[in-house]
């Protein structure tokens, strides 16, 4: 088994996929860092001040003005109301929600990339783990070895888990190193408020906790990693089911994007919460944003994702052990 895993790892490293992903992340992080830098500058220019209190106050006012518009949807209105209350809470307690520095940038970056960007990176690896063996024809060589099929598949899956872990780590590390060059490397111990609960447009602050940013960041990373594993497993299943890598990727991509769209408009369709796509934004439970459908909790989302994960594994292993290979 160990040998098999080593063998799969060797194949992955030889194809330099991880390097390509690292390069993609590095380029994008550099771009975002620059964009963020520019935005802060223009904000300062506009308001003529650098105090975060004034900036946050201005954000609240801007959101309040958006609330006044009659064209916005009810869901959006609720989310705005929640975020206004949250900003106000930060302001009232004199805590800067985005202390300048690399750790804050990493936090923002991870939060925003958790439901699409990181899953996409994982897909680059996951979606052709099995199907590429078909297209290259090497599957026959692999299966003629005196090893049970499930072991072969398991070794591939383990490699997927390992590379997912590496990708999440690399993304965070690159975001830290690159953005730190501009924003500075400090801010690990900045206070972060968590434990908000959202009920409709109300924000319940009775259970709030204060923690250091590094603790908050690690928790978020754990959640992001879990989301990445689930998406990876689903693409892995598709890679077993569909022999064409492109088709598998296309299906997965469609699912992910539909999740983004659905999250913005499903609030009245309660049973949509059983789709894995609308449950991907786990980090918003920690930071206290309104979930896409009322009644969704961290536990329910993790459970839904876990069920999808197990189902995908069962399907993958059953199909792979019975599949005809020609």
């Amino acid at each position: 088994m160990n040998k098999l895993i080593q063998n799969e790892m060797l194949k992955l490293l030889a194809r330099k996929r991880l390097l390509i992903i690292t390069a993609i992340v590095a380029i994008l992080v550099a771009m975002f860092t620059y964009a963020q830098y520019k935005e802060t500058q223009s904000q300062r220019e506009r308001l003529g001040t650098m105090e975060w209190q004034s900036l946050l106050q201005q954000q609240i006012i801007d959101s309040q003005n958006r609330l006044g518009s009659s064209r916005i949807s009810d869901e959006w209105r609720q989310q705005l109301q929640v975020s206004i209350k949250q900003s106000q809470y930060y302001l009232d307690n004199n805590i800067n929600p985005s202390e300048p520095g690399a750790p804050t940038f990493v936090r923002m970056f991870i939060e925003n990339s958790s439901d699409l960007f990181i899953p996409l990176l994982i897909m680059i690896i996951a979606s052709d783990l099995v199907s590429s063996e078909h297209s290259l024809g090497s599957i026959k060589l692999l299966l003629t070895r005196p090893v049970q099929r499930w072991k072969i598949l398991l070794s591939k899956y383990v490699v997927l888990l390992l590379s997912t872990s590496l990708i999440v780590l690399v993304t965070a590390a690159l975001a830290y190193v690159i953005s730190g060059a501009v924003f500075g490397y400090h801010g690990w111990t900045a206070p972060v408020i968590t434990g908000f609960t959202v009920e409709g447009s109300n924000l319940n602050t009775s259970g709030v906790k204060l923690m250091d940013q590094w603790e908050f960041l690690l928790m978020e990373m754990g959640l992001v990693w879990f989301v990445a594993v689930v998406v990876g497993t689903l693409s892995f299943m598709l890679s077993v089911l569909i022999r064409s890598t492109a088709a598998g990727m296309g299906v997965m991509l469609a699912a992910l994007i539909s999740g983004m769209i659905l999250s913005n408009m499903v609030s009245s369709w309660a049973s949509a919460k059983y789709f894995f796509m609308v449950n991907l934004k786990l980090t918003s439970y920690l930071s206290g944003a309104a979930p896409p459908i009322e009644g969704m909790t961290l536990f329910s989302s993790v459970s839904v994702l876990f069920v999808w994960l197990v189902a995908a594994l069962v399907v993958s292993f059953t199909v792979f052990s019975r599949q005809d290979v020609y």
């Binding site: 888990l161 390992l162 997912t164 872990s165 590496l166 999440v168 780590l169 434990g195 690690l218 928790m219 978020e220 990373m221 754990g222 959640l223 990693w225 879990f226 439970y285 920690l286 961290l298 536990f299 993790v302």
Partner: peptide, 16 residues
């Protein structure tokens, strides 16, 4: 790294 993330996940859910 994989085990570490698993730990972080557990921590997040537990702390939440």
């Amino acid at each position: 790294v994989c085990l570490f993330w698993l730990f972080c996940l557990g921590w997040a859910v537990q702390d939440y």
